[in-house]
Design a protein around this nucleic acid. Sequence first.
DNA 1: ATAGGGTTAG
Length: 599
Amino acid sequence: MQLQSLKKNVVRTVAANKRAAEQSCLSLLEACDARCKFVQLQAHILKLGLRNNPLVLTKFAAISSELNAVDYASSFVFSPDADSRLYDAFLFNTVIRAYAQTGDLKEKALVLYNAMLRCGVLPNKFTYPFALKACAGLGSLSLGQTVHGSAVKFGFDDDVHVQNTMIHMYCCCGSGVKYARKMFDEMPKRDSVSWSAMIGGYVRLGLSTDAVDLFRRMQIAGVHPDEITMVSVLSACTDLGALELGKWVESYIEREGIQKNVELCNALIDMFAKCGDVDKALKLFRNMSGKTIVSWTSVIVGLAMHGRGSEAVSLFEEMIRNGTVPDNVAFIGLLSACSHSGLVDKGKGYFSLMTKEYQIVPKMEHYGCMADMLCRAGLVNEAVAFVQKMPVEPNPVILRTLVSACRAHGKLRLGETISKSLISNEPTHESNYVLLSNIYAKMSRWENKTKIRKMMGKKGMKKTPGSTMIELDNEIYEFVAGDKSHKQYKEIYDMVDEMGREMKRAGYVPSTSEVLLDIDEEDKEDALNRHSEKLAIAFALLNTPPGTPIRIVKNLRVCSDCHSATKFISKIYNREIVVRDRNRFHHFMDGLCSCKDFW
DNA sequence: ATAGGGTTAG
């Protein structure tokens, strides 16, 4: 073997020439891969007397990161019997980088950074991107600020690489985004990476409108975006559900000749699928070369969201035939496809394929998909038994799935029990109370329902307000329940009232039991009519020509009253209405929904 | 000799 002969070569030359030994040892380290025994290498270094050779140690540390042996290498390199006078910045940088890249050892990168300063080794311009990346991974604003201060002290804060990493780091530290923006605004010279870091940061924080605004400013500033910038911009479109904007971005990419690499194609596929045009996503997917597991998963998830489960399943089968090995994310997509389309037996089969054939240890999300699948299919008892048999404690998300199913399928006592335990475990989570209240409503135990409402008021819970977005003439409009901020609000409310009258004539019954407020029935109807979905639909009916499809995006799950109302509206006003909610798409047409009331 | 920003689920 090549490795064997290299080793012999090292041993031969070591006696003759120390310099040649170093070179040979470096080549040996270079040739080392996962098959090579890391420990043997270490013994070799000792045997050759290169224990304190910084170059060899650096190479040793660099290789360790690919073998997930950073901790081991670090303890060898920086052991007490090593000669610390030989440590240099390159060596520290290498180990700091290795730690910064490692999943759960990022804090050690900063420990080493501090050790470096204590040893009197001066950091250089490469040190800061590594150390800041560790802070970003930890999401620790205070650590980031300390390292930032240190970079200023040593005079590396005017380097554009360092500044860009700082923007990235501050964006990864939640409340740090304002510091990121401040740095960004004060930079004397911003390159495309600076813009991408800031735009990408906004997207990750869910501030997608800010991301789009910044992209517009980037164009005004005359900085040419590259494929990485465009991935973030597309991600913002996906988040906003802004199909028109997304289409514009696609044509912009073509026009500007931006290279459509695999990642950019994946982002385009994801955008089209999640903005409602899954057929376009499929077309792009078919035409792209170099498909990765991400490409397959994106399109499988896209089909699942549109209720096209069996297509998702055949695509998964095709992927396996193509030799792409599914990972745990692909299985989450596949299982959710089965769940959304009622393919219970298929789902069970794939769950066991995943664990047995692919040796993937199921995570909470996989269990969640299975519980969800059984619940949707009305197999509540089986779902409960499944959850009890799980080797891990179910998380609140799974328990809430069970409670909803209990309510839908009349297992009210059980639902009440689970729901009460949820409230005691998670007393500040609003939806736990809503679930219990809905169960009481179904049991007609109104006094209990009132009690729940009072409890909620006392706890002062912050409620995620439902909001609905709609795109019209290159603008994105957002509505919240009872919104009166819009210029047209009077017309919108008149339209909502008219819609209500027409729907009632057609047989719509408002589901006032969904309303948690303790108000009389008429006011409850009023509250339902002011839901953000209905405001957005009224706005669209007013401002778009008859017959054009209406696309709206809801931030939460669509409520059952709005779901049934939208069916009536699609028929009465002869409109196709496409609703994207938190989980999936609903295509309403002629009084029916594509989800077949199965969501 | 070592550097910065990105994609799939929940």
